[in-house]
Design a protein around this nucleic acid. Structure first.
Lengths: 156, 156
DNA sequence: ATATGAAACTTTAAGCTTGAAATAATTTGC
DNA sequence: GCAAATTATTTCAAGCTTAAAGTTTCATAT
């Protein structure tokens, strides 16, 4: 998957394959760096940051299945991450009156403060790590990736 | 990290943040689809495919540490994946005369045949999944991601 | 030769991840 | 009303992942 430089394949369809390989290497490289910094600076993990980011945008809370869909990870996965965030006091589950199968998951006040702090630093990291990409190219790239994404909406 | 559509942040540096989010969502979406297909069609996993892809390009074999560096994953991780590939008969470790700490890891004949089969189908999948990206845009995007990458070489 | 340190690899513990099975609550069709 | 199907979540087993600690081997300098 993360195949690389050497044989430089050619032929029809190879351009997309090469694009995919670059895309994957780029995101893995950045992800690895972020993971390491989150660990060192804030003693947390990327998945926990992801969950907090989602919840921060939803003050009213989210269902577990909302989180799972939004973050593109499985249900069981979210259960574990939220469990850990709860035990750290950063997130709370609130039982609902209407539907006793579900619970609203929210950031606690501490979770909200903590996330705000990390997010500010995080944005600086991204600026640094993507520094070589001009704001112009960034917008153009984002546009391409968005149109790619629309290919995918409403699949599953 | 995989934050999304709703509040559409603005301000200096936000373009790069948005790019990163799109990049991550795109690669996770594709990765998830590939993982699922590899499992269903070939009963294998992405990490194993990655290792086999690396070894396929290196008929003379690779050291564990080469694999680790090339695939951007930790040493210990490679040990586990290679162990499983060995137990499946797809990969072999060959002790070396010169240095008894190391062993050359290669595809077996069966591993080579198996990988060739999967890789052909895999390339088709990528063509399908990235179908909406024109070959032209693919080349352009690849170029941008490459120049980004040069920002990173020789860091660690 | 032999200590010292570096290199290559494995092991370990903790956490992330998935898909599938299990539980529980709600909704639907009769 | 009640059985059946659906929905929301958790649990589980297997595998992936990392960082850190441990083992073995090699290289170097005395």
């Amino acid at each position: 998957m993360v195949a690389g430089p050497l044989p430089a394949p050619s032929g029809p369809g190879k351009d997309r394959l090469r694009l995919w390989i670059r895309l994957l290497r780029a995101s893995r490289t950045i992800e690895a760096e972020l993971r390491e910094r989150l660990k060192k600076e804030f003693n947390t993990t990327l998945p926990r940051f992801d969950v907090m980011a989602a919840l921060y945008r939803a003050p009213e809370g989210m269902l577990m299945s909302d989180l799972s869909r939004f973050l593109l990870v499985s249900n069981g996965n979210v259960t574990g991450i939220v469990d850990r965030l709860v035990s750290e006091g950063l997130v709370a589950r609130a039982r609902r009156n209407g539907d006793r199968r579900t619970s609203m998951v929210r950031l606690t006040e501490e979770g909200s403060r903590t996330f705000a702090t990390i997010a500010a630093v995080h944005e600086g990291w991204i600026g640094e790590l993507l520094g070589k990409v001009s704001e112009d190219d960034a917008r153009r790239l984002t546009g391409m990736l968005t149109s790619f994404r629309s290919n995918w909406e409403g699949r599953e």
